[in-house]
Design a protein around this nucleic acid. Structure first.
Length: 291
DNA sequence: CTCCAGGGGGACG
DNA sequence: CGTCCCCATGGA
């Protein structure tokens, strides 16, 4: 069992980043968080704003590299925050919430999580993911506890849909299993997709059942490193309508993607992350009025 | 009971 | 192109 400390450039708010809805693989416990990275049981703890401590059954150098990549630890957030602050609404969100980061998650675990996100809520996505891990994932010891990791794609390929339903997946089971097949067979490979153009990678993901533009964009952003991608979900539709087009009418669906790309050049993913989090916490929108 | 949750597919006009 | 309904499920 190795335990390492990592420096996260620009800082990180661990509890927020792990719980806000860009990953669904973490549960709080023992003053930190237990979860899965790349099929490994990992324990994470916040030491100070720029320091994390990580434990796992791995050589220290491998653990360090795994977690460092996960948190995109070398990214210069000051530059990102500076660019975001040019937009008044993003600026408010940045001032209110420091320590948000776009994670760089393992491809399969990210894809599975967002396949389960459709017409769902964050708490229940967590519950479904945990159920799948408990039922089909390997149990690994970490930090004095036994942690069930999220199952690799090969493990889900032959599970009957009814068994997945029983974990609470609902109608998302078909898409999840089909995606597991493509990843297990090598048809979809995160390293390969990450090297394609944004458009080509998105198109390939959208060829999968249950993966439309929004879910594809979340995977491009949170797993494949396309930081300019701005996922358009229900919250962003509210934000655009209330904040950016308060009088006029919302641009047509196809128009919105181009609009956000031009509005937040190069940092669309961070812009979306901050707007999403702020809106959900009633900082930019009157949440009571909308929900 | 209805409505909604970080959607998407299919059938319509 | 847009709009409608359906897809499971649990909480408000």
């Amino acid at each position: 069992m190795a335990r390492v400390r990592l420096f996260i450039r620009g800082g990180v708010d661990l509890a927020t980043v792990l719980g806000m809805g860009q990953t669904f693989l973490w549960r709080p416990g023992r003053g930190g968080f237990f979860g899965t990275i790349q099929g490994r049981a990992v324990f994470l703890r916040q030491v100070d704003t720029e320091t994390l401590e990580a434990s796992a059954s791995l050589p220290p150098e491998e653990l360090s590299a795994l977690v460092s990549r996960y948190f995109d630890a070398e990214r210069d957030l000051e530059e990102v925050r500076r660019l975001l602050s040019e937009d008044p609404h993003c600026r408010r969100a940045v001032e209110r919430f420091s320590g948000l980061r776009v994670l760089r998650q393992p491809f399969w675990e990210c894809l599975a999580g967002f396949l389960l996100s459709s017409a769902n809520n964050v708490r229940r996505i967590h519950r479904i993911v945990r159920k799948l891990a408990e039922r089909y994932g390997e149990v690994q010891p970490v930090e004095g506890e036994l942690q069930a990791v999220f199952p690799p794609p090969e493990r889900l390929v032959d599970i009957p849909l009814e068994a997945l339903y029983d974990c609470g997946t609902g109608f998302r089971a078909r898409g999840l299993r089909e995606a597991a097949r493509r990843v297990a067979s090598g048809e979809w490979d995160g390293d390969v997709l990450a090297r394609l153009s944004e458009e080509e990678a998105r198109a390939r993901l959208m060829s999968g059942y249950g993966i439309g533009e929004k879910i594809a964009d979340c995977v491009l952003l949170y797993a494949l490193g396309f930081l300019e991608v701005f996922p358009l979900d229900v919250w962003m539709r509210r934000v655009l309508k209330e904040l950016y087009f308060p009088d006029g009418r919302l641009p047509r669906r196809a128009e919105r993607a181009r609009w956000v790309r031009r509005r937040f050049p190069g940092v669309g993913g961070y812009a979306q992350l901050y707007l999403y989090h702020a809106a959900r916490h009633g900082v930019l929108l009157d949440r009571a009025k909308l929900v």
